[in-house]
C-alpha cells in the first residue's frame, strides 16, 4: 500500500509542482489584474491608511512586472509589461503619496529597455501616451528619442505632440510647487533635489518658446495624423497653441459678449476694475 502510494505521489507530484509556478504570461496577467484591484481600492478608499495600502500593493507589484519583462524579453507580453511598469509608477507619482523608488526606479529601467529593444516598434505610442504624464528627465529624453528615431510617422507625430504637452505640464507643475512646500518636498524625494533646482533655474520664457515650437511643428508636419481618441494631431496642436497664447496666466482674457439668465446682454469687460472669478459650469 505504502509503495503504491509513493508512486502515486511521485506521478501526481510533477504536474502539481509545475502548476505551482504559473507561466510568465499568466503571471503578467495576474499582476495587471492586481493593479486594477489596487487602483479600485484607492478610488474606494476613505482613510489615509486605506490609500497607503493601495499604494503599497502597486509599489510591490511594479518591480515584479519589470523583472518578468526582463526575464522574458521574447515573450509577446514583454513590451506591454514594460509599458505597464511605466503606467504603474506614474500612477503612484500622480495619485498617491508614495515616496518613490529612489535610484531603483522601475520606470527608468523600463524606458531604457524600450529605447534599446523597441525603438522601431509601431506600438510605441502606447508608451508615449503614458510617459506624457511623467515629470522626470528620463521621460523627456524618451519622448525626444522616439520623435527622432521612430521610423513610423504616426509614432513620431504623437511623440512630438506629447513632448510638447509633457514640457508644458512640467512648467505648470513647477509653478504649483512654488506655493506648496510639502509637495515640493515630495518631488525632491522622488525626482532628486538637483534636478528640481535645475528646472527652477531654467529660463521660463525660453522653455515656453520651445513648447510653442513643438506644437507648431506638430500642427504643420503632422497635421493629418489621427489621434487614438479622435481628432488629428494638427487640431490638437493648434488648440494647445491657442491656449498658450490666449488662455494662460498672464494673458488678457478674451472678451465675452452674451446673454445672462434674464436675457440681458453684457460683456465680461464690463467688469474691468473688479477682480473676476470666471466659472465654467454645467448642470448634470
Amino acid at each position: 500500500m505504502t509503495h503504491i502510494g509513493g508512486i502515486l505521489v511521485l506521478l501526481l507530484g510533477l504536474p502539481v509542482a509545475a502548476r505551482d509556478e504559473p507561466q510568465p504570461a499568466e503571471q503578467y496577467k495576474t499582476l495587471v489584474k492586481e493593479f486594477g484591484v489596487a487602483a479600485q481600492g484607492l478610488w474606494n478608499a476613505t482613510t489615509d491608511d486605506e490609500r497607503m495600502k493601495a499604494a503599497e500593493r502597486v509599489a510591490k507589484s511594479t518591480p515584479q512586472l519589470l523583472e518578468l519583462a526582463e526575464k522574458n524579453p521574447n515573450e509577446p507580453f514583454a513590451f506591454d509589461a514594460l509599458v505597464q511598469v511605466i503606467t504603474q509608477e506614474l500612477w503612484l507619482e500622480n495619485n498617491t503619496l508614495h515616496p518613490g523608488f529612489g535610484k531603483d526606479s522601475p520606470s527608468v529601467r523600463a524606458l531604457a529597455i524600450l529605447t534599446r529593444d523597441h525603438i522601431k516598434s509601431d506600438k510605441l505610442s502606447d508608451a508615449t501616451r503614458r510617459v506624457q504624464y511623467g515629470f522626470r528627465k528620463e521621460c523627456e529624453t524618451f519622448l525626444r528619442t522616439v520623435m527622432e528615431k521612430s521610423p513610423h510617422k504616426e509614432v513620431q507625430a504623437l511623440a512630438c505632440l506629447r513632448l510638447a504637452q509633457f514640457l508644458s505640464a512640467r512648467l505648470q507643475r513647477l509653478d504649483i510647487l512654488k506655493d506648496k512646500p510639502e509637495l515640493a518636498k515630495r518631488y525632491e524625494g522622488i525626482f532628486g533635489k538637483d534636478y528640481l533646482e535645475a528646472l527652477q533655474r531654467q529660463d521660463r520664457d525660453k522653455a515656453i518658446e520651445e513648447v510653442e515650437g513643438l506644437f507648431e511643428q506638430a500642427a504643420e508636419k503632422y497635421a493629418d495624423v489621427k489621434q487614438p481618441f479622435g481628432g488629428t494631431v494638427g487640431e490638437r496642436a493648434k488648440s494647445e497653441l491657442y491656449e498658450i497664447r490666449n488662455l494662460s496666466v498672464g494673458k488678457v482674457a478674451p472678451d465675452i459678449d452674451g446673454e445672462d439668465q434674464d436675457g440681458k446682454r453684457f460683456k465680461l469687460s464690463d467688469y474691468r476694475g473688479k477682480v473676476v472669478l470666471l466659472y465654467f459650469w454645467s448642470e448634470f
Binding site: 488662455l247 470666471l278 466659472y279
Partner: peptide, 30 residues
C-alpha cells in the same frame, strides 16, 4: 450671473472641462 452659451463662448475658451475656474485681476489679466 451667468452667460448662456450656445457654443461661441466655449469655442473661444477652448471648451474647458467643467468645472474650470479662471481668476482675472482688475485689469482683465488671467
Amino acid at each position: 450671473r451667468s452667460f448662456a452659451d450656445q457654443g461661441a463662448i466655449n469655442e473661444k475658451w477652448n471648451s474647458p472641462p467643467t468645472p474650470t475656474y479662471y481668476v482675472l485681476d482688475h485689469k482683465g489679466v488671467i
